[in-house]
Deep mutational scan, measured.
Amino acid sequence: MFYPNSPQTSPQLTQIPYGQQYAMMQRQIQQPYHPFATTEPQARLYPYHYQGPIQQEQGGFITQQSTAASPQYVQMRVTPVDQSIMSGYPNQTANGSSSSSFNYNIHPQQQQQQQQQQQQLRHHAMPVGSVPLQDDRYRKQLIVNYLAPDVTSTDLHELFSRFGELDGARIIYDKQTNMSKGYGFVYFCHAEDAKEAVERMSGYEFHGKWLKVGYSTNPLNIVPSNSSPYVHAGSRGAAG
Rank of each mutant, 00 (worst) to 15 (best):
P41K: 01
L211W: 03
F188S: 07
K195R: 08
Y73T: 03
M126K: 01
Q64W: 10
S10R: 04
I222L: 11
I171W: 12
P219R: 01
S98L: 02
N218P: 03
H107P: 05
R122E: 07
Q8V: 04
P90F: 05
G164W: 06
M201H: 14
G19T: 12
S227A: 10
Q113E: 12
V231H: 07
P17K: 03
C189I: 03
C189A: 12
H49M: 14
S100P: 06
Q110Y: 00
Q20V: 15
M25S: 09
A194M: 09
L147K: 00
Q64C: 10
Y146P: 09
D155I: 08
M126T: 08
Q118I: 10
A233L: 02
F61C: 12
Y173I: 05
Q134P: 09
Y48N: 03
G129Q: 12
K195L: 05
G214T: 05
Q176M: 15
I172R: 06
S84M: 06
F206D: 10
Q113S: 14
N103A: 09
N91K: 07
M179K: 09
S216P: 00
D174V: 11
Y3N: 03
Y104V: 06
R139I: 01
P35I: 08
E158W: 14
G96V: 04
N5K: 02
R137Y: 01
M76A: 07
A233D: 13
Q83D: 03
E40T: 04
Q75V: 13
F206K: 15
S100W: 13
P127S: 13
L133A: 02
P229Q: 05
S66V: 11
Y50L: 07
V151T: 06
N145P: 03
E158G: 08
Q111H: 11
H207N: 07
E165M: 03
L133Q: 13
Y73D: 07
P108C: 14
P149M: 13
L220T: 10
Q119A: 04
F2L: 07
H49K: 02
I143E: 00
P90C: 13
L142S: 10
P4T: 09
Q20P: 09
F36P: 02
L45T: 12
P53V: 05
Y183H: 00
A148D: 14
P224V: 00
D150T: 02
S100T: 09
G234K: 04
T67H: 04
Q176S: 05
L220C: 06
M179C: 10
I222Q: 05
P127F: 13
D155H: 02
P47I: 15
G59Q: 13
F188E: 15
R139W: 07
R77W: 15
T79Q: 12
Q21H: 14
N91V: 12
Y104A: 04
A169E: 14
Q20H: 04
H190E: 13
Y138W: 00
H123V: 09
G96M: 15
Q21P: 04
K140G: 01
Y48K: 04
P7V: 09
Q58E: 07
H107M: 01
P4V: 10
K181E: 00
F206Q: 07
M24E: 15
G52K: 01
E192T: 09
V144I: 04
R77G: 06
Q141G: 00
K181R: 09
A238C: 15
Y138D: 00
A148L: 03
W210L: 03
V128E: 01
N105D: 06
P80L: 12
P7H: 08
R27Y: 11
Q119R: 03
P41A: 13
P32D: 07
Y46V: 06
R44G: 10
P32L: 11
G184N: 12
Q112F: 14
K212L: 01
Q116Y: 02
V213W: 15
H157V: 11
K181V: 04
P4M: 01
T154G: 12
T177C: 03
K175R: 12
Y73E: 12
T38P: 02
Q118V: 09
D82F: 02
Y183D: 13
Y138G: 08
E205Y: 00
